[in-house]
Simulated assay, not measured.
Amino acid sequence: MTRAVELVHRHGDHLSVVATGSGVELLRYVYRAEDAWEAPKPYIHPLRTLSGQVVTGYRPNDHRWHKGLQMTASHLSGANLWGGNSYVHGEGYLALPERVGSMAHAGFDEVAVHDGGAHFTERLTWHPRGGEPWAEETRRIEVHDIGTRSGSWALTWSSAVTNRREEPLRFGSPTTHGRPDAGYTGLFWRGPRCFRDGRITAPDAEGPEMMGRQSPWLAYSGEHDEADGHATLVFVHSPENDHTGAGGAHPAHWFVRSSPFAAVAPSFAFHEELVLNPGATLARRYRVLVADGTWDRDRITSEVGALSWGVFQE
């Protein structure tokens, strides 16, 4: 049986997932360490549609630390694992390199290709600047449901972060520190420059008013440069994330912008800090549908509902 993808591992640098037949590199997961000012951490770039169009940005001139799709922590117990300037209430963004930390690749436990796609599981350590690890993360990336019928494929990102300090870890954002509508932290997507002023869609709303609000999914559609056409990315909470907080989990809120650039993050510390006690684990799982074309709300609802989640594995 012909497998849907091939996986190429350039050891010490990156993993590539390539669609068989077309030869399109659907994603490149880069885990080499990069510039210390940019809070080195693994990231996905490029991320592509099935037709080969790139739907991520990398090191834009406004924020060099924005790199495709990556897990971030903008305010973590006084450290900045986001990159660049740090927000200080009353003073704005300041160059404080002593605060900028990193998320370091520690190894892969599993790298596998199967009939329906591919997956890999990684171990990482989270560090303040020049210090001992504050946290350990187990991360699983899955590529699946690669369908020419729907013109889309699915990426599932699972992260389980365990506090290894002897005191609580406090996850925050610029908003928890006093800046309105800047609740970015957690999984973060930066779109390509051409996606500026794109379309934002949620189950019951559209547009920038979704900033700081809650919903089980949020979609962003943009138009390509160079090639004709559009693409849609749908960011989806898994059921166990309990994105409303109704079941006792810390509630998530969307950070989303279409201007001056395209960005989406299902922030877990938008309005309030998330406190992770010593030895406790913060587990979150997200899905990103990467589609050619512009999907309307009915299409998004149908496609999101058609994919099952299965059992969550930390």
Rank of each mutant, 00 (worst) to 15 (best):
M1G: 14
T2L: 11
T2R: 09
T2Q: 08
A4T: 10
L7H: 00
V8P: 00
H11P: 01
H14Y: 14
L15F: 01
V17A: 13
V17L: 06
V18L: 02
V18P: 05
T20E: 03
G21M: 02
G21Y: 01
S22T: 08
V24C: 10
L26S: 09
R28N: 06
Y29R: 03
V30N: 02
A33C: 09
E34H: 08
K41F: 12
H45Q: 06
P46T: 08
R48D: 04
R48C: 15
S51K: 07
G52H: 10
V55T: 09
D62C: 03
R64L: 12
W65M: 01
L69N: 07
Q70H: 09
T72P: 15
S74C: 09
S74D: 10
L81S: 02
W82T: 01
S86K: 03
S86R: 11
E91Q: 14
E91N: 14
Y93E: 06
L94E: 12
E98A: 04
G101L: 00
S102H: 04
A104M: 06
H114A: 11
H114Y: 10
A118R: 04
T121Y: 04
T125R: 14
W126Y: 04
E132L: 09
E132I: 03
W134M: 07
E136A: 15
E136C: 10
E136Q: 10
I141P: 00
E142C: 12
V143K: 09
H144K: 07
G147I: 15
S150H: 15
S150C: 00
W153V: 02
S158E: 07
T162S: 03
R164N: 02
E166D: 10
E167A: 05
G172V: 07
P174Y: 05
G178P: 11
G178Y: 07
P180F: 03
D181P: 00
R190W: 04
R190A: 13
R193W: 07
R193E: 11
R193H: 07
R196T: 14
G198T: 01
R199Y: 08
R199H: 09
T201G: 02
A202N: 01
A205F: 05
P208Q: 05
P208Y: 02
M211N: 08
G212C: 05
Q214F: 13
S215C: 10
S215G: 05
P216E: 11
P216G: 03
Y220F: 14
E223P: 00
H224L: 05
H224M: 07
A227R: 14
G229C: 07
V234Y: 13
V234S: 15
V234G: 13
V236W: 04
P239Q: 12
P239W: 04
E240W: 12
H243Y: 13
G245Q: 11
G245Y: 08
G247F: 05
A249I: 06
A249K: 12
P251F: 11
P251T: 10
A252M: 14
W254D: 00
V256S: 11
F261T: 13
A262S: 09
A262P: 15
V264M: 08
P266W: 15
S267K: 15
S267N: 09
S267E: 06
F268Q: 03
H271A: 03
E272H: 10
E272I: 13
E273W: 01
L276V: 15
L276M: 06
N277D: 15
R285C: 12
Y286G: 02
L289I: 13
V290D: 00
D292R: 02
W295P: 00
D298K: 04
R299A: 08
V304R: 14
A306V: 03
G310I: 02
Q313H: 11
